[in-house]
């Protein structure tokens, strides 16, 4: 049994710089114990995250045979090739456009849904549940549903447009509308998660703030601008990160709905990586693209945490 005195002594020694060998041994023991607890996670991260990331980079500097074995070192020429390849530049442009179409739209609509769901009305919880329903929907099933809705002849969307006198749209078959159509599916899919998290954020805003603003005669829009929006900014920031990363990594929708077409108009970066290595056997070329994706996401994350987060209001 450890006495109280011994406990006090051990606390004291941990505060002191571990100069004696006993203290050093205690530090060592703690470290080994922690390492034992961390090792299952660390092993998985090493094997499937850190080492593969390095291997991706090494792969991108080599030429490979059709089954992925390196045959020659080419340095950074793959990257040079990438920047001169109009198809890669197209993929880059399509990816950025897709991010631009989906992220702000999702956030704005979800903000509207959350405001509606936050109304003090009877049975509002039913509406809240409907607004958050797409959390349970996978990208594959959502895409299949929209594949039907987009159908040029039998689809529901063109029929409904026809009812209000709008001519049929080509949706996925038209070079101009294919990317916005995939974006539409993505926005719908992301609405659930966004709305749920915004609603939770809104419920965390103290009621007294609104009450005192009402006494001061602040209108509804003024209360939204000066209370809801600033206090919600950490939540919006969090969602911005989540949505941006999801948009850059979107793949399923493209694989089910368009397979990169028509004429590469939806050939986003991740789809291009998949096609180059899985079908064309261009391992090193695809690896170079995946490293570019890594750096884009790294830059986006750094910018977000460095610049935007400083303007976010925390309680």
């Amino acid at each position: 049994m450890v006495t109280n005195d011994q406990r006090l002594a051990s606390q004291k020694s941990s505060r002191r710089t571990p100069s004696s060998s006993r203290a050093r041994w205690r530090e060592m023991k703690k470290f080994l114990l922690a390492l034992a607890y961390l090792s299952p996670s660390l092993l998985i991260f090493l094997a499937f995250v850190f080492i593969p990331l390095i291997r991706s980079f090494i792969l991108s500097t080599q030429l490979t045979d059709p089954i992925g074995r390196p045959v020659a070192f080419v340095g950074l020429t793959q990257y040079q090739r990438l920047l001169q390849n109009p198809q890669f530049l197209n993929s880059l442009q399509r990816t950025l456009l897709f991010v631009l179409y989906t992220v702000p739209t999702t956030l704005v609509i979800a903000l509207g849904l959350a405001l509606l769901g936050n109304l003090r009305l009877r049975r509002i919880s039913i509406f809240r549940m409907i607004f958050s329903l797409t959390i349970a929907v996978s990208a594959a099933t959502a895409s299949l549903i929209f594949l039907y809705l987009f159908h040029p002849a039998l689809g529901m969307l063109n029929y409904l447009l026809g009812l209000v006198g709008i001519p049929s749209i080509g949706w996925l078959t038209d070079v101009r509308t294919a990317l916005p159509s995939v974006a539409l599916v993505t926005v719908w899919l992301q609405l659930g998660l966004n709305t749920v998290i915004l609603l939770a954020g809104m419920q965390g805003i103290p009621e007294e703030l609104y009450e005192s603003a009402m006494i001061d005669g602040a209108s509804g829009p003024a209360r939204f601008r000066h209370i809801t929006l600033p206090l919600l900014s950490p939540t919006i920031f969090f969602l911005l990160v989540v949505d941006l990363l999801a948009a850059f990594q979107a793949f399923t929708q493209f694989h089910v709905l368009t397979k990169g077409g028509p004429i590469n108009s939806t050939n986003v970066l991740v789809f291009s990586i998949y096609r180059e290595f899985y079908f064309n056997g261009q391992y090193s070329y695809a690896a170079a693209q995946s490293i570019v994706l890594f750096f884009i996401m790294l830059v986006v994350t750094i910018i977000q945490f460095g610049v935007i987060e400083r303007r976010v209001v925390y309680e």
Partner: peptide, 17 residues
């Protein structure tokens, strides 16, 4: 840091492994 590394950046080596 593993949250910042997109799964797609490691997918080719993982597939090969």
């Amino acid at each position: 840091s593993t949250l910042m590394i997109p799964w797609e950046a490691t997918i080719i080596p993982n597939y090969l492994t």
